[in-house]
Each structure stands twice: as structure tokens, then as C-alpha cells.
């Protein structure tokens, strides 16, 4: 199995800084802004981005965590059921500009589930999407507003995002899978 590091720790931090600046620039500040991370790594990513925006704008940014398990379209019949976890959004999202954050954008199905979940929680003024890596192969008409790195991949390849909080290191790897085609 071949692994190529496509983002190292320093690059990781630079990417986060840049994305935070892009958000502020696009929103002309952070008025009415909130970030929502999709469990698990999107959540850690959201915390870092929120912290960075707070540093830039010198004001607190509301931050929430979204568990999309209940909204997955492949929930039933899976042999390995994910443990259902809580959504923790302790502020009213109605009227807010939300930045939805995930680590890798692939088929778009996760984002679809997240959008539905958010709609059940409230009525945001706007939702923008931020991903660390966009690897292509969309199955739904979904496009990210902020992208850390575009990585064209084949179906045999896999993107591994590692984060200090869970993995002890910040890095993104491109992995050549031994399986002929990875499961979506």
C-alpha cells in the first residue's frame, strides 16, 4: 500500500489560516457567522477554524457539532452500524450564516444528510460549505464554497485526514488502495 503525504503539519496550519481568512473576507467580517462541524473530523476542523476567526475578528464565534447518522441514506442494513451520537448546537441557527465544515468532500451524500439535519433544527439565512480536501466524484449537485486543497483522485485511491486531536498528528495522505475499487 502506497501512502503519499500531500499536506504536512505546517501546510495543514497554513490551510486553516487561509480558509479562516477567506471566510472573513467573503462575509466582510464575521457578523452573524457560526460554524458547524460534521462529526468526527469536521468537528475538530470547525473548532480550529472558529478559533482562528475569533483571533482575526476578536469576537466569539458560535460553534456546533452535527451528527448526521439519523439522516444517512445508507443507514439501514449496514452490517457495521455507526454508534449514534449527539448533535450539539446550543444556539439558534435561524437567521445565521452557517459555515458547514467537513474534512473530505467526495460523493456529496454526507453534505446532503447534513443539510437535511440542519433544516430540521432551524432556518439559517445561508449555508456555506468548507472542506479540507475535495477529491471529486460527486454524485449529487453539491459544490464547496471554501476548499483547502483540490486533489484529483481515482476510485482506487483514498484520502486519509489525520488530526492532532484524535491521531496525534496533522497531515493528509493519499493512499493507494489494494482493493480494485473502494466502497463509496
Amino acid at each position: 500500500m502506497k501512502k503519499t503525504k500531500i499536506i504536512d503539519a505546517a501546510g495543514f496550519q497554513r490551510t486553516i489560516n487561509r480558509l479562516a481568512h477567506e471566510i472573513v473576507e467573503k462575509g466582510k467580517g464575521a457578523e452573524n457567522l457560526a460554524v458547524i462541524g460534521i462529526r468526527t473530523r469536521g468537528d475538530y476542523l470547525a473548532r480550529r477554524i472558529a478559533a482562528k476567526i475569533e483571533e482575526i475578528e476578536k469576537k466569539p464565534i458560535p460553534m456546533g457539532t452535527l451528527d448526521i447518522t439519523l439522516y444517512r441514506d445508507d443507514l439501514r442494513g449496514r452490517l457495521d452500524q455507526p454508534q449514534l451520537q449527539s448533535t450539539q448546537i446550543l444556539f439558534d441557527i435561524t437567521g445565521k450564516t452557517l459555515v458547514l465544515i467537513d474534512d473530505v468532500l467526495f460523493t456529496g451524500r454526507t453534505i446532503r444528510a447534513a443539510l437535511n439535519a440542519l433544516m430540521d433544527i432551524g432556518r439559517p439565512a445561508e449555508i456555506q460549505l468548507l472542506v479540507l480536501v475535495d477529491r471529486g466524484h460527486r454524485e449529487l449537485p453539491i459544490k464547496a464554497d471554501f476548499v483547502g486543497k483540490n486533489v484529483p483522485t481515482s476510485m482506487k485511491q483514498k484520502i486519509d485526514v489525520l488530526m492532532n486531536e484524535v491521531d496525534g498528528e496533522d497531515a493528509v495522505f493519499l493512499v493507494e488502495s489494494e482493493e480494485t475499487e473502494i466502497k463509496r
Binding site: L70, Q83, L84
Partner: peptide, 23 residues
């Protein structure tokens, strides 16, 4: 434990304005 842990997640759903999820 699995049922109780899962129930904790659903308690959060019950606090939402729309107390309905699609699974």
C-alpha cells in the same frame, strides 16, 4: 448500554424545535 447511550442522543432530538428525524 447501547440502548441507553442511543437514548441520550435522542434526548437531544427531543429538545429541537422539529422533534422529528428520518431514520
Amino acid at each position: 448500554s447501547l440502548i441507553l447511550d442511543t437514548a441520550v442522543s435522542f434526548k437531544e432530538v427531543l429538545e429541537r424545535p422539529i422533534k422529528k428525524v428520518p431514520p
